[in-house]
Nucleic acid binder design. Structure first.
Lengths: 387, 387
DNA sequence: CTGAAAGCGCTTACAG
DNA sequence: CTGAAAGCGCTTACAG
């Protein structure tokens, strides 16, 4: 009983148990056993599909799906057959097919602005803690580098490849956020824009961190302070959020407390920190207290100060803001630091995102997390004023 | 002329210009204009599909596809119509549909072992340079955190979500590599296994780096050396490649040159480096030259040495291996360093991967890249032997 | 509890 | 140069 059949485009898909056909892909007249399909026996790629499992288990495709997803009751007997078949074929669900049918990939993207091209140790911690939390809740979170342009965001959100987006390194007026709001996919910010109406975010409470930092220095008798940061980012966009907020808070708090205050910026590198220290020594000879918010530059800055003749903390006190103990500990002496709550931010950012995806209609979270103080050998009493 | 039709499951898909039907999703008797479909006017998600574009441009779905992909000749007139329609609908191709049809997502994964949980500055540079190169060649490369288990690799490679994989942090006998070899998807290593037969990789030439490092110290008169590293990883797997190879090379080179040599390991942190220095001072009082291959611990180690009473480089010389200038510059004094060719490795690793995907059947690349020396203030002549 | 079939949004061999 | 239709690998409303 040989019959020449119209060919399915790529492969035998129906529950026909045995028939002969001319395969356009294999150029032969072949007997094909769909009922006991062994993918390794054919010329094609050796991954089994759900249909293969169904054929082997002698059930329908639908039943296999119900079994795998627990989406409908399946009798123990059937379940056993299906599971046996899956094991035999070493079956793995294809996530792309599933994604197309469901509209879900279970992949989340942590957007990383590639232009800026430095991923600070603190950002790495956002990433790892966010990834952990995502996994805990059944998602994969990947770090997705992209340009700062809104267009790139659109491309990703409309691709269907990810179910949601966490954005880092937010500018005060960030076109990417506008674009995300326009898109249909859920998102959350680590950081925040100027106007946060209706936008879920988690961020460091920079304002309170600055106040804490300044007050700690005041308590030690310092009255002449400098804030060192990493520059404002794109000024057209209102600047990089952390820097803008920190500067503003620094200005306000020092004014309110009646202190002398100035701001300096440098590169995000250790060499940048050394240069900054040289510049600092020249420009601010009377300053005795420094807040530094520039993680990469911190240890270099401390080294540079000492090369410029300062002894720490006798001549000058330095406090790192929104950095980490590990970075602070690279400096000699070890810096005091207001530790960025990076792990918590990563976790909460992912929670905010997944809560939206899973359609809990809780109000959108907007959270500010505090830094915590870790002492170090760079904090000391202000020296007596020079005569 | 009202007719009640059997409903397509989710939406109007055919080229019917206008008809009435009862929508199960919208619970109304509605007039639907498929010919001039405006996604914003309906209740459903506002993303246009290729069918919407085809309807608006009055061409077939296939023609839209040909236009977008330049996969068949299309008349200028038709092309213009299609492009106009795409613009009007703000159309973006859905990557999941495309991926299912083509078997390609154009996404590559850089696998990052989440268990290990530190992404060194050098690894960050792998990532950014790999991502850049991927983009240049038309792919997205994302950093994909996963456990060290082979099972997790299988899950990813069989998901269809990525077209290829670059693996970092390779162990000498790495089950993930075995799993990748078994899978159908292309891969490349940054690093290498013990047996590299048939496996495409790019790696640092640790052997020559060690030789260079030792010889530089010898030239300065040092004869008693210690190698400080970050521990061997999972010993069951033959250990972390860079550490294993470096130790072996260090043993061989120092033996061959007739030097005293020892090896120490510490944590991957600055505090770990400080602890190591203390231990070092106690255990190796006669050593005058140190090779350190532990990026996170470097600056802490240098700081710890000085706290233990060493002056650098008068009493002791330190040379960092496979690290970066930026990390070296966090130490005071700045460390001399054999710079890891991270950018090049990232780029070449991606090239090796994409070459396979794009079916160039060049032989699989197996490349060792040299470190380059950058001077620093931690290298000096060996002190005269103590009496 | 199980199955046939439509649908997700694309690509492409085949036939004009 | 253009189109109708099958297929990619799944999910799920509907009907037993």
């Amino acid at each position: 009983m040989i019959s020449i059949m119209p060919l399915p485009r790529r492969r035998c898909q129906e529950k026909i148990k045995a028939l002969y056909f001319v395969s356009s892909t294999r150029h032969t007249l072949t007997r094909v056993e769909c009922g006991s399909f062994d993918p390794r026996a054919t010329g094609r790629s050796n991954v089994a599909t759900m249909q293969d499992v169904a054929n082997l288990a002698n059930v329908s495709l639908a039943t296999v799906s119900f079994t795998i997803n627990n989406s409908k009751p399946v009798s123990p007997k059937t379940r056993a057959k299906v599971e046996q078949a899956m094991k035999e074929l070493n079956y793995r669900r294809n996530a792309v097919g599933s994604a197309l049918a469901r509209g879900r990939t279970h992949v989340l993207a942590l957007l990383y602005p590639a232009l800026q091209h430095r991923l600070s140790p603190t950002s790495v911690r956002f990433f790892t803690s966010a990834a952990d939390q995502a996994r805990l809740r059944g998602y994969n979170l990947v770090l997705w580098p992209m340009s700062n342009e809104a267009e790139a965001v659109t491309e990703l959100t409309s691709s269907g490849l990810v179910d949601g987006v966490v954005l880092m390194e937010v500018q005060l007026d960030d076109p990417r956020v506008t674009e995300l709001s326009r898109s249909n996919i859920p998102f959350a910010l680590i950081g925040r824009t100027r106007d946060t109406t209706g936008i879920p975010f988690v961020d460091v409470n920079f304002e309170s961190a600055v106040e804490t930092a300044v007050d700690r220095l005041i308590q030690l008798g310092h009255t002449n302070l400098v804030l060192v940061d990493g520059g404002g980012g794109d000024q057209l966009l209102g600047g990089y959020g952390p820097v803008a907020r920190t500067r503003k808070a620094f200005g306000e708090v020092t004014a309110q407390r009646g202190l002398s205050a100035a701001i300096m910026s440098g590169l995000h590198s250790s060499a940048g920190g050394r240069d900054l220290a040289k510049e600092f020594a020249a420009q601010h000879p009377d300053t005795t207290g420094v807040l530094i918010m520039n993680e990469h530059a911190g240890p270099g800055f401390v080294a540079g100060l000492q090369q410029a003749g300062y002894r720490l903390p006798r001549d000058i006190s330095v406090l790192a803001i929104a950095s980490s103990v590990d970075t602070a500990s690279m400096a000699e002496p070890e810096m005091a630091v207001l530790i960025s709550p990076a792990d918590e931010l990563g976790r909460l950012g992912v929670d905010a995102l997944i809560d939206q995806i899973d359609k809990k209609d809780d109000p959108l979270p907007q959270l500010l997390i505090e830094c915590t103080y870790s002492p170090g050998a760079t904090m000391g009493k202000a020296p007596r004023k020079k005569p």
